[in-house]
Nucleic acid binder design. Structure first.
Lengths: 312, 312
DNA sequence: CTGTTAGCGCATTCAG
DNA sequence: CTGAATGCGCTAACAG
């Protein structure tokens, strides 16, 4: 009992220490799996991300891990590639009783898809990119309001005199909401939105999209890319044509990946404080694990921040 | 038995399918922890890295995961920050019978530190940055010869006419070997080495080191940084002083992190094919898990590759 | 070849 | 308050 971390007033501190010491000398350590079998608590959390090698996610995971470590939970990393197949596969996997809880980013699953898992007693905290309500299913959401962030970016640009602002984005994921925010804000400011959507949300996609914008006759004074990788592609396209950044065209990205401050000129972008999000998500999960399993889901908003660098 | 993935010629394919189907309908799935308790195989692998948010490691982890996934092992991510404390803590953790095997990068632990773990039946595959021999302890090493890579970089620069090549490096980790290789190759080519060591192996460190080099009167025509982050810092320092890259001073890095090709100009660097290393390491681990637990350790070398971009 | 049983190491319950 | 007995769900060994 002592070794499991339990507390009882009936055992004196002295005895307690004797036990701990003896255990250390004998090299004894309780078997996690026997514990898990008996208590049906695995002391393991799954962290699900679309791509661990996408620079956006490791910081999130670090945040999660910093709290799970402190609570003696192990963290299992799970990549889904953001595909429906692999996300469903994760659900099946998680239902095998391998983990006590889940925190993750899901591109294709809907809240109802989690119902069986949650009802089997495994709490889920999702990290989302648009406003959520907190439905009847006991899933907790934590989100950054991407739409508002995109509006903020657009307003920042218009406040600096830009009216011809183009946006480039990829298909899928959170990028749709960002486009909406941009459109709304630009219309409100009296501008005319111009959006180019491409398949890949990568540098190559950004480069191609920028070329389309330049060929369109829209003549933008600023280009807003739905993520940093695309923004970097945009910058490459502009540089190839000898267009000065930000002199002739300003560029803004989204995510604040580590490369954003390393390109030339350093990229103005939006941070989502991903580490903080990870911490917060894990805390919410820990809270569920300790207490109210069945209560309705919550949704809490996290801040974003505009980071001004020299590309604008 | 069927569900555990066993094989027996005595069961017809038809029966086999009936069982699997029935199990699917009933939603039955064997409990991993009961299995683990009974068989003392946890079906879990630990992947230990100094810093998951350092762009170098996620690709490695992906490689590892691509093979563990295929073998139905879970992957637990473990960050050590490369500190002795946390690396020792990992050892203690691993001895609690939580994982069947370990693959990782260790900065401070020595082969002998792993002996208790390995002798308790948990195979370890280390990823190293200098030539290893394969000692008596049953640890498998897989390494890239950093020294040779640093020599190759230096030779590449001298072959392009550089003789005044400075090197900047951080303390600890694999950077020492890289400095050795540089010195040896430059001396062999008749040059005079000039090394600046700083505490942090980050951009800031690289920036400071570059300033030291420039202030020294060495007047380099090329600067070789022990990793890409430092190289990027060097580039910033040069840019601040209006020194043209590569016209006046060429810059080379090490690691080929994703940012390397995104900076301006794109950075010439050395790749260690980190994903391949992860795959290979995991394969070796799987081999150990299936067979020869006690055999002497092996050490296999992995290739590096010089990636020429526009910074040279 | 199918059906039964013991026990992996723990946390919990019940008797002492 | 301490000690022994039970069973978590499974696999492996054994008997029928």
């Amino acid at each position: 009992m002592v070794l499991s971390g339990g507390t009882s007033p009936s055992i004196s501190t002295e005895t307690h220490e004797r036990i701990v010491k003896a255990a250390a000398e004998l090299g004894y350590t309780p078997n996690r799996f026997a514990q898990a079998l008996r208590t049906s608590r695995t002391m393991t959390i799954a962290c699900v991300v679309p791509d661990i090698s996408n620079p956006f996610y490791p910081a999130l995971m670090r945040g999660v891990q910093s709290v799970t470590d402190g609570e003696n939970y192990d963290l299992i990393a799970f990549n889904t590639d953001g595909t429906p197949d692999r996300e469903r596969h994760f659900l099946a996997w998680a239902r095998q009783g391998r983990v006590d809880g889940v925190v993750g980013v899901f591109f294709t699953l809907r809240a109802s898809d989690f119902r069986p898992l949650v009802e089997s007693g495994v709490p889920v905290v999702r990290i989302e990119s648009s406003k959520k309500q907190g439905g009847p299913i006991a899933i907790d959401d934590i989100y950054v309001d991407s739409r508002a962030a995109a509006e903020a970016v657009t307003n920042y640009l218009t406040s600096r005199g830009h009216t011809r602002i183009a946006m480039v984005a990829g298909r899928g994921g959170p990028q749709g909401t960002r486009v909406e925010g941009y459109k709304a804000a630009l219309l409100a400011a009296g501008g005319t939105p111009h959006v180019v959507i491409v398949d890949e949300f990568s540098e190559a996609g950004g480069l191609g999209a920028a070329e389309t914008v330049l060929a369109s006759g829209y003549k933008p004074t600023a280009i807003f890319a739905a993520n940093d990788l695309m923004a970097i592609g945009v910058m490459q396209a502009l540089r190839e044509r000898g267009i000065e950044i930000p002199g002739e065209i300003a560029v803004v990205g989204f995510d604040d990946i580590s490369a954003a401050k390393l390109v030339t000129p350093p990229l103005t972008t939006v941070t989502q404080f991903q580490r903080d999000m990870g911490v917060k998500a894990a805390q919410i999960l820990m809270h569920r694990l300790r207490g109210p399993r069945g209560e309705a889901g919550t949704a809490i908003e996290m801040p974003f921040g505009l980071i001004e660098r020299n590309s604008t």
